[in-house]
Design a protein around this nucleic acid. Sequence first.
RNA 1: GGGUGCUUAGCUCAGCUGGUUUAGAGCGCAUCCUUGACAGGGAUGAGGUCACCUGUUCGAAUCAGGUAGCACCCACCA
Length: 900
Amino acid sequence: MNKLAPTYDPKAVEDKWYQYWEQHELFKSTPDEREPYTIVIPPPNVTGVLHMGHMLNNTIQDILVRRARMEGKNALWVPGTDHASIATEAKVVKRLAEQGIRKRDLTRDEFLKHAWDWTHEHGGIILQQLRKLGASCDWSRTAFTMDEKRSQSVLKVFVDLYNKGYIYRGLRMVNWDPKAQTALSNEEVIYREEKSHLFHLKYYVEGLTELENEAELREQGNVIHRDERGYYAVVATTRPETIMGDTAMCVNPKDPKNQWLRGRKVIVPLVGRVIDVIEDHYVDIEFGTGCLKVTPAHDTNDYMLGKTHNLETIDIFNADGTISAESPLYVGMDRNDCRKQIVEDLKAAGLIEKIEDYDNKVGYSERNPDTAIEPRLCMQWFLKLKHFAEMALPPVMNDELKFYPPKYKSTYKVWLEGIQDWCISRQLWWGHRIPAYFLPTDDGSEAYVVALTEAEALEKARQLPGYENIEASQLRHDEDALDTWFSSWLWPISLFDGINNPGNAEMKYYYPTSDLVTGPDIIFFWVARMIMAGYEYVGDMPFRNVYFTGIVRDKLGRKMSKSLGNSPDPLKLIEDYGADGVRMGMMLSAPAGNDILFDEALCEQGRNFNNKIWNAFRLVKGWEVADIEQPEHSRLAVKWFQSVLDATLAEVKDHFTKFRLNDALMSVYRLFWEEFSAWYLEIVKPAYQHPIDRATLDATLGFFDSLLRLIHPFMPFISEELWQHLAERQDGESIMVARIPEPGEADRTLLAQMQQAKDIISGVRSIRKAKNIGNREALQLHVMGSLDNPLTGIITKVACLDGITENAEKDPTAASFLVGTLELAVPLGNNIDVAAEIEKLEGELKYAQGFLAGVEKKLANERFVANAPEAVVAMERKKKADAESKIASLTATLAALKGQ
RNA sequence: GGGUGCUUAGCUCAGCUGGUUUAGAGCGCAUCCUUGACAGGGAUGAGGUCACCUGUUCGAAUCAGGUAGCACCCACCA
């Protein structure tokens, strides 16, 4: 009797095997003579916790790396975490605030100590969670973007790129986050639609009391405003608080409405500043009044206008978003309060023409979602990307480096072709401090040197004229840190220490890595830049394939979010369904590149599959073996299943080469459930309490072994557990390093014969159900013609027949059915319902006639017969013949029935 | 405003370079099944004018053009 429980309990086995794998160092990889297979993990935020996106992403990586390992490759999956500078710093600032500590009251070192404490406290939780999932990472290589090697790599690259002239410092309009008080890259700004107002403000024309040719001008299409105070232009703006920074008004020279304003000067309302009316084709004639106020310090477009027209720049904001001393009014007031106040004041002064409702897009910080981004001019470090884009584009476009799915190639192309320089400095402390040192100057201008260490910086500084005697204490190390992605883009190189030790043995062996698995949302942030860094620093691509996963959504298609509460806790899912069940749940819904609609029911399906495997195993393990002859049906079943297995192995292999993992999983699923459990095991299963023969048992155990190997990449735990039970294993043996079976040649004829046998069995079962005949009541089967199928033994057993008669006479008392063109029948004596039988047969006849009509029409078309390939025409002829024979057979049976 | 992709059974999706018996899968659904692996199971079955229109072709879910709807990405409309 069986000692295994009737249901599979993942909890009892998962931790056990994970420890076993780790103890035996089965995840470890070192270079050897085998072909390498390498994946570097997209490093999760060091202080983060696992979410559904990670589950998907890491399940895929684990499937790929386990499969590669089982193909005999030297498989390496390198784990690590990311310091996530803005996000982590924000969390630390928040925690300090809760303790009543303000960041600005701490020194840099004090703050960093808190940040490191936080990192050590939360760091690595996510890596522990990945272990629960079964991730087969080489943990001995765990890296962190701010560990010693990675930090050195980042600084070296900065210095190198500076020396090559790609890094520069510039006064630029950047996306400023006034809360974090740092610049952001364009990619870190999210735009949201917002209900707002369009304020129409009056800008009086200076020194104009009387327009002589006013009537004529109006005639020509000019829109002229005038009140008791004089002539004025109307400017529409969503941001009235920025008028203190206005240094021009701009109209389109082709705008007929505003011709009268050309060459004049206007007065900024409230402020009283007199500014020029400038002309630029940039201004949209259709928008608002066609008059644009120009605030070069606070709007990207205005900044560009300012540059072309040489305008003065007045920066009216401080770094924290309050009004600066440059402004003539409202100094020290917060920008949001100022907006309200100035609207009141403008109204009071009669300077607002009207206020309209208006929807506009406002940029927010990705990391501080409540904080509107302020375009701000400041000195930042930039990396020129043109050179990098030129290197990174061709290999992707010509498929040397493949994207799956390929549609992302065009996204990639568009971005690279319009590449902008990358603002790489952040006004943060948590990150890699920029290795630049400022020198004192007399005139307030900037002077600096870039060097890896302070000592080198000093040496460099002393070579500069006028700084020969500078002391270390006079150097001021740049306070800013680098954008997090400036370390991430080196990841596939820095993990193998390829920046510090170019061309080292590990680089030569593992680089380029094989596959990168990541989300399309970071194609610019990360993927593109890694490709750039790869070509710059190794002269080769960082990975051969990029597999873009979809975004995990709930079953209604909504993004998973905390506020909706629709994001399940991955660890709870693992608790409930087992890691294998959850992995399968993820993969069942994950076609490459499409968003995945996650439904917990899929985990249930995964768990059920585990249970199916478990019980099939219980069955096989419960068999007593005896020295008896192998029955014919078992011998045939073994032969047949070998063919199905071979065919599926080939199919799965093909799916893997195309990254069609869900299709691969579905093939495996059906192979195990349908072919193996429902058909094969049912055929070879001995009668209750009867033993099985040796040959069949051995073959079955062999099949089970192959199936477990095939399943292992998807469901590592249960496959290991059962594989270990399947035979005597030595300590240290593992399915992890067993080989995926190579597909052999499948016997297509045999597969077709089995298909026919299955159809016949289904036909008999169907009659049993219709006639309410028990499954164990033996029946006769009549074949009107010759069966010509070697699998009659299987048919007899599974359909529970006590005889098959070929070339039988038509028997009106039999319930008949068709398999292909072959008519079969089960004699039922007087049990048959003639009327129902006739109805059924007439239905089939009608279908066959309709089908025949279609085929005949095709064949009657001369042009079809003349133009279509011969094989196609022959196929149609065969269809016709088959349909005719079917019709003949059905007609005869009907006649016999009706003649009763 | 530009780009990319999508629209096939109740749901989620396959269907690769047009022809493989008037389209397939998984889940769900319906009906039946109580003792011999598994109800987290078994068997049987229902369910689709392949979004729409026009064309190319002997032949279109598949190719081309257009229409509608959806999704995502990019962009400086104050």
